Simulated scan of single mutants.
Amino acid sequence: MRRRHHFHIDHAGHSVSATVETGHRVEVEVLVDGKETGHATTHGDRPVFVHVELPTVPPTPVVVRATPGPGVPRCVLEAPDAAQPLVMSPRPY
């Protein structure tokens, strides 16, 4: 059974959202400031790394790491200016 999970974080003045659709095949979609900027798929509970850029001057490369399982999915944002990965908050919608 497929299920969608939503995550969000604000970083460096930009909105980063991720949707993780679980099931046999896991799909991850990343939006930066409301625009789709990255997409990836995997199987099972393997982590997915989606490389995107924040529209700063110059652009800032960041990585959204989605871990589909086991259990409830989790997402973190890995940014060069953060000492450790930033946990993205789950959204109920």
Score class of each variant (00 low, 15 high):
Gly71Phe: 10
Thr42Glu: 00
Phe7Lys: 03
Val16Thr: 07
Pro90Asp: 08
Leu77Trp: 12
Val48Met: 05
Pro85Arg: 05
Asp33Ile: 12
Leu31Thr: 13
Val87Lys: 11
Glu21Pro: 05
Thr42Asn: 10
Ser17Val: 11
Pro59Thr: 06
Val63Phe: 01
His14Glu: 02
Thr41Ser: 14
Glu78Ser: 15
Gly13Gln: 14
Ala18Ser: 13
Lys35Gly: 00
Ala82Val: 01
Thr42Lys: 04
Glu36Leu: 12
Gln84His: 06
His8Leu: 07
Gly69Trp: 07
Gly71Asp: 09
Val87Phe: 06
Thr37Glu: 15
His14Met: 05
Val16Asp: 04
Gly38Phe: 13
His6Thr: 00
Phe49Thr: 13
Val32Asp: 08
Gly69Cys: 10
His51Gln: 14
Thr60Val: 05
Val76Gly: 01
Val16Gln: 01
Ala66Tyr: 02
Ala12Glu: 10
Thr37Val: 12
Gly44Met: 01
Pro85His: 09
Pro73Leu: 01
Val28Leu: 09
Val72Gly: 00
Pro61Tyr: 06
Ala18Cys: 11
Phe49His: 15
His24Gln: 10
Gly34Cys: 12
Pro80Ala: 06
Met1Ser: 15
Tyr93Leu: 03
Leu54Cys: 06
Arg3Trp: 03
Cys75Met: 08
Val87Cys: 04
Arg46Tyr: 10
Gln84Pro: 03
His43Val: 12
His6Trp: 08
Val72Ser: 08
Ile9Gln: 11
Ala66Gln: 08
Thr67Ser: 12
Arg3Ser: 09
Glu53Gly: 11
Leu31Trp: 15
Ser17Asp: 15
Gly23Val: 15
Val20Pro: 08
Val87Ile: 15
Val28Gly: 03
Val62Glu: 08
Ser15Glu: 09
His6Phe: 14
Ser89Asp: 13
Gln84Asp: 15
Phe49Val: 10
Thr22Trp: 08
